[in-house]
Design a binder for these strands. Structure first.
Length: 728
DNA sequence: AGAACTATGTTTTTT
DNA sequence: ACATAGTTCT
């Protein structure tokens, strides 16, 4: 193994107009011949750019674009890279095959699946579908009932997935989850077996299956291995630290004949271990590919020096030492600013105020982002932003395909593709009035054995109470099968039937949901066949409100979970909710999980180019709706305070500091989180957002309070919901 | 018995 | 905003 130390010193990012290391990336991409190359690159050091240049270089060298395979983390990334490379090579990169591991697996398995006795007519299911199946199985196995009794569908899914992707055993995973072992395992194995059987019976593949079969294809079929390996002469992989064992194996097998692999990654940015990613893959790469040339990129071209100093300090406290420390030549710039707000509302207000300031000073909203650990952490901020008229785009959190009305529409289209898709039938039939789960089962039982459930359905004799609606459904499904319909036509047919039902189910908010359906319509009209639309939405579900055409993204601010912000950058970045208990996530166990949370903060802070704001509330609503005293996240408490500036001008417009606190038992469990609940006493003066000022008359029950309002008389309020503030 | 309704609980992160 | 458990209605 030869290690190429650093890079030539005449390459520096001097020019401001070309912030990323154009020449350096190009040089690395060009200066190496064939064979395995590992690029270990820090945040903002131009690793994606290096891959782009590599791709362009290969094609200029005369490599056929069709024989290059580009594997990236998201398909969006693949498209962007292909476009950028296309600009360098007059468009020939468009013939490069590029996408996620899963999307590529889909294409290859449809073509070569017969070698594994896997027909081309499989359906890809997403996590929601899988959980739905687990639920069905649980109830049919008599494990439903008590409801909260484990294994819950989520636990089962995580375990199945974990067992596939990680080398650790299920027993170990269960142990880590602190579940009762023997009782749990029996149920788990039963459910897992039935789940596998169900998928086989119905031709369903979940995310993990795609990779498992892909690997199996390469291992078991000599033909496939030779054909694939000679078809793809060069393999390029982005974000290699996010690959799991299966994916690393697949890369190894694909390159078996030629060893032409270039992977780029950053061990300090590994944040997906919960779904099997293992950054040890990067460390093992040189062993798996003897003769690997290793290139380290340690100069950061993204952030100013003060930001980089802080991010380096955050990652320096990691238990495992990482391969590099970043430096920059962008000296000067403001230090990161830390703002402690009295409560969550004040935190949101502070961020909005700062955004307002930046916006007035001419910073476009697209150059600003607010990042957080979990989707719901931004709820307060979203309200505050809306109140100030800011348009924002939220990434992460709820996906478009996860909402019920979208699933409804998709289920019609899915039974067209796969008439044995019982989950979708279930959804469709339940929409009929007077038809519940039992009736659905009856219908499906009588129809299931048929060669074509659809025609069998026509013969089914419905009860008089729902005959009319049933016939409408059958008629619509029949018309969906007419030949020569485009996916867009089929969508229209579905909506013709579904609209009245839709408006009835969602009578209170169907206009909003209808707008989301319009997005689906726009999406579907870009497809030539229904099959690929269904697969794509399972593999890469679109986000709510994202890419809605007509909305000029120029004027929109970005809110994002840190996970979804990976690989992106902004001039000004706010990282909010940096309080202990919220970041790291409260369920994070000491050890590797804790370390991953630290890397997550590292990823968040390294998104900032010029300005970085860190905020946290000193008081927040706990899971049991009690107010908790919160302190700064330990990851920041550990770094030298000299690396950031404290802003203590954050004021609560509505002071809440005067509440009395009482200790609860949760303080024992989380010694670093002081926990407290505000208690009210008779005679206190309070103010309410709507009713105005008043006086506490009595406390009639737990969490209930009777208040005589000056202008609205006496009201009994529920403390969990009422927005009350104590007046001095 | 099964459908319809009501109350309650839950949400880390995602290809 | 959804799923589920428990209750009431037909």
């Amino acid at each position: 193994m030869r290690v190429q130390s650093s890079f030539p010193e005449n390459q520096s990012a001097e020019s401001i107009t070309e912030p990323a290391p154009l020449n350096l990336a190009q040089q690395i991409a060009v200066s190496h011949g064939d064979g395995p190359i590992l690029v270990i690159a820090g945040a903002g050091s131009g690793k994606t750019r290096t891959l782009v240049y590599r791709m362009a270089h290969l094609i200029e060298r005369g490599v056929e674009p069709e024989s290059v395979l580009l594997l990236t983390f998201t398909r969006r990334a693949a498209q962007e890279m292909l476009q950028r490379a296309g600009e360098l090579t007059a468009g020939s990169c468009r013939r490069v095959m590029g996408g996620t591991f899963h999307a590529t697996a889909n294409i290859l398995l449809r073509r070569y699946g017969h070698l594994l006795n896997l027909g081309p007519n499989f359906t890809i299911i997403d996590r929601g579908d899988a959980e739905g199946i687990i639920n069905l199985l649980k109830s049919s196995l008599g494990m439903g009932g008590a409801g909260k009794r484990f294994p819950s569908k989520r636990v089962v899914m995580n375990l199945i997935s974990g067992a596939v992707n990680k080398s650790s055993s299920i027993e170990q995973l269960v142990y880590e989850d602190h579940l009762h072992l023997t009782e749990f395992l029996n149920d788990f194995y039963t459910i897992a077996d039935h789940y596998r059987q169900f998928k086989r019976d119905h031709g369903l593949l979940d995310y993990d299956d795609l990779l498992v079969y892909w690997k199996q294809l390469l291992v078991e079929s000599e033909n496939a291995r030779v054909e694939l390996s000679s078809r793809f002469q060069h393999i390029l992989v982005d974000e290699y630290q996010d690959t799991n064992l299966l994916q690393a194996e697949i890369v190894r097998l694909l390159a078996y004949c030629h060893q032409n692999v270039m992977v780029v990654g950053d061990d300090a940015q590994s944040i997906y271990s919960f779904r099997g990613a293992d950054f040890a893959n990067i460390m093992r790469f040189p062993e798996q590919f003897p003769g690997t040339r290793i290139v380290k990129l340690e100069e950061n071209y993204r952030s100013t020096e003060p930001i980089l100093q802080l991010t380096n300090a955050i990652i320096a406290n990691a238990e495992k030492k990482f391969t590099k420390t970043l430096f920059t030549e962008k000296v000067g710039g403001v230090r990161p600013q830390l703002a402690a707000a009295p409560n969550e509302a004040a935190e949101a207000r502070f961020i909005v105020q700062e955004i307002q300031k930046h916006h007035q000073n001419g910073t476009p909203l697209t150059d600003i982002a607010v990042l957080f650990r979990s989707g719901f952490h931004s709820f307060k901020l979203e309200i505050e932003l809306a109140a100030h008229g800011f348009d924002f785009e939220k990434r992460g959190g709820l996906r478009l395909t996860e909402s019920a009305h979208i699933k409804d529409v998709l289920s019609f289209l899915r039974v067209i593709i796969n008439p044995w898709d019982n989950l979708s039938w279930n959804r469709i039939l339940l929409q009929l009035e007077k038809v519940g789960p039992k009736t659905v089962q009856k219908i499906l039982n009588s129809v299931r054995q048929a060669d074509n459930p659809l025609t069998a359905l026509t013969a089914y004799r419905p009860a008089p109470t729902w005959r009319l609606q049933f016939e409408k459904l059958v008629d619509m499904l029949g018309r969906l099968h007419q030949p020569d319909l485009t996916p867009s036509d089929q969508y229209d047919l579905v909506m013709e039937y579904y609209s009245p039902i839709f408006e009835k189910i969602y009578y209170d908010d169907y206009p909003k949901r209808r707008r989301e359906l319009e997005q689906i319509k726009a999406l579907i009209s870009g497809y030539g066949d229904l099959q690929s639309f269904i697969d794509d939405t399972a593999l890469d579900p679109p986000e709510v409100g994202a890419d809605a055409e007509g909305i000029r993204s120029e004027q929109r601010l970005t809110l994002s979970t840190i996970h979804s912000a990976k690989g992106l950058e902004w001039d000004t970045v706010f990282v909010m909710g940096l309080a202990e208990g919220r970041f790291p996530h409260q369920h994070a166990t000491p050890g590797e999980q804790w370390e991953e949370e630290r890397r997550l903060l590292y990823v968040a802070t390294t998104r900032a180019k010029k300005e970085l704001f860190l905020t946290y509330p000193k008081e927040m609503l706990g899971s049991d709706r009690q107010l908790l005293r919160a302190s700064l996240t330990p990851f920041l408490r550990e770094v030298s305070p000299g690396l950031y500036t404290n802003i203590d001008q954050v004021s609560a417009r509505t002071p809440l500091q005067t509440g009395q606190y009482q200790q609860t038992t949760s303080q024992l469990r989380h010694p670093n989180v002081q926990s407290a609940r505000i208690t009210y006493q008779e005679g206190m003066r309070v103010t309410h957002a709507f009713f105005g000022h008043g006086r506490v008359v009595s406390i009639p029950g737990p969490r209930r309070i009777e208040i005589l309002f000056d202008r609205h008389g006496s009201k009994i309020l529920h403390l969990d919901y009422a927005k009350l503030e104590i007046l001095d």
